[in-house]
């Protein structure tokens, strides 16, 4: 018998599946799985919220700080002033179960966050941006509204879901960033939460100053500003559209009969 050298058959060690088909199957399948997991976890967060009171939560997170937070010095003047402002605003929420702590995040991007245990985080960017105490008071009141409705725990619960997703997707240890960004991003999915927090913020501002003048001025400025499109886009990704928001608040204040003009309290910085 004569041996004839032949080429081996192609494709034994290589699958026929087109890489794009493989990619599509994985993306669609995994997305479905994650949506299911997310829905279940969000439901579980609601269950936990039902059983864990705000007082228990405050105890549990007493003194807690996110690990990746870059804060300013304890003696920072703006930190002390903001803390004092929060303490004053809380007087209009007498049965508040939290001892509110303020921390300033060393970030240029204007934002504010409500985190478990009564931790209010405002960014340097926000403090640079606000023009009067009334504006700042509204943003802080809005965050207090999140505490009142316990949105911050919901956001954190969802944040954990998203950070697991990020970590799994990139194989990276980004849990901290995940929680932070998820806390910001996922709130935009719940405009009702934001609107309720806005209402509470307005109510607090009205009780404190006797009027709601300038409360939504920040959003009017952002709504009409075109040159800082990047800032605007960033902010919109976490909160409702600024223009709409200012209009909604104006309407709400009119319905409640809150005065929309009054003396503006300047900032000390």
């Amino acid at each position: 018998m004569r041996f004839v050298a032949r080429q081996p058959k192609e494709g034994i060690n290589v699958s026929d599946t087109h890489p794009l088909v493989e990619a599509g199957t994985l993306v669609v399948g995994l997305t479905a799985i994650f949506v299911i997991i997310a829905v279940v976890l969000i439901f579980m967060v609601e269950v936990v919220l039902y059983f864990v009171s705000a007082e228990d939560e405050a105890k549990l997170f007493d003194g807690w700080l996110p690990e990746d937070l870059v804060t300013v010095s304890y003696t920072d003047e703006r930190l002390l002033e903001t803390q004092a402002l929060v303490d004053r605003l809380v007087l209009h929420w007498p049965d508040a179960p939290y001892e509110f702590r303020v921390e300033i995040d060393d970030s240029e991007q204007a934002n504010a966050m409500a985190l478990p245990g009564g931790l209010v985080i405002v960014t340097q960017g926000l403090l640079d941006e606000v023009e009067s105490e009334n504006e700042l008071a509204f943003v802080l009141g809005h965050e207090l509204g999140h505490f009142k409705n316990r949105d911050h725990v919901r956001a954190l619960g969802r944040g954990v879901v998203l950070s697991i997703f990020f970590a799994a997707l990139t194989g990276n240890d980004v849990a901290g960033i995940g929680i932070k960004s998820a806390d910001l991003t996922l709130r935009s999915f719940s405009r009702r939460q934001e609107a309720r927090a806005d209402d509470f913020g307005l109510q607090v501002v009205n009780s404190e100053y006797g009027h709601v003048n300038e409360a939504w001025h920040l959003f009017e400025r952002w709504g009409g500003k075109d040159d800082s499109i990047i800032d605007l886009v960033k902010y919109l990704s976490t909160h409702p559209d600024s223009g709409d928001r200012a209009a909604t608040m104006k309407r709400h204040a009119e319905e409640k009969g809150w005065q929309s003009d009054g003396e503006i309290t300047p900032l000390s910085w």
Partner: peptide, 24 residues
Amino acid sequence: FKRVIAGLRGLIGGRIKTYEPLLD
């Protein structure tokens, strides 16, 4: 591309089809 698809595959296991032609 292969890395991302393999990363997704790594979540659930199975043949990493995008790596097969690479190693072949």
